[in-house]
Design a protein around this nucleic acid. Structure first.
Lengths: 133, 133
DNA sequence: ATAAACCCTGTAGGCACTACAGGGTCAAGA
DNA sequence: TCTTGACCCTGTAGTGCCTACAGGGTTTAT
């Protein structure tokens, strides 16, 4: 029923330092302490950390996670805001994919142009260099 | 022939603070100074900064840029290393695209499951919450 | 008794900038 | 000539999200 920081870290695959960091920035409540001053967590803290981890795995920023946590605390609130945050994040993810796809295409073109001579004739370097000099 | 920091910044669409930052970390040489202690750049500095910008736009890290700059300086060097750095970077980019694609798919599934009730029944929150409680 | 494994606090580092405080300098207009 | 605004300088601190110490204390197993 009570867990050490190492235990919740292991259970959620979260670095101990990261758990303390989440506490420091107020994402996790300050837990009770034992006689030895060790942090002592309950199931609720473990659940909360799991929620954070899962959200982070889905690429939400810590600020977004903070908002989602706040919203999920009020069970009677309607979930339009949750939906909005998630959709905004999805748009972000899709934009990043597109950016990286373009970038990858460009990079591939640059690489393909190189046929392995010396740097003076290297097309990669040329492609990176300014257009006219 | 001689440019101020503002001018090379504008020409390469680089923030002035970023130019100074590149100088501080040794990516750009310390330029000559005028009587007023203003930085004074020549064409070579502008070219070098363009190279850096273009590489950054292609997603190379500053350390990779530093390596590419070093390699491009020795025009007689063979360009296998340039090729290697670029290909390693491309692999990275492709990995990121794949990660984001998976993430986007998951996120879309989570969002689709929400049909707009209250948080207590919100499938997004549910999907983020730990599996059993 | 001792060693390994765990826990504590506080601070600094990493990436690639960006922002700011608190100044100096320069070009153009009133 | 004065003033306004745009530019430049240095140095430091902040961003997001951790991660890695340093320098301690505690618990567990042998």
């Amino acid at each position: 029923m009570a867990f050490t920081i190492g235990e919740i870290g292991k259970a959620t695959r979260t670095n101990i330092e990261t758990v303390r960091y989440y506490e420091r920035i107020g994402l996790l409540a300050r837990p009770n302490r034992g006689a030895n001053n060790y942090r002592s967590y309950g199931q609720d803290a473990l659940d909360r950390l799991s929620f954070i981890r899962r959200s982070r795995d889905l690429g939400f920023s810590l600020e977004q996670v903070r908002a989602l946590l706040g919203l999920s605390d009020d069970r009677t609130h309607d979930c339009a805001e949750v939906d909005r945050i998630s959709k905004a994040h999805l748009v972000e993810v899709e934009r990043k994919i597109e950016d990286l796809t373009v970038l990858g295409r460009e990079l591939r073109a640059v690489i393909d142009s190189c046929d392995g001579g010396i740097v003076a004739h290297c097309r990669i370097i040329e492609a990176l260099a300014p257009p006219e000099r």
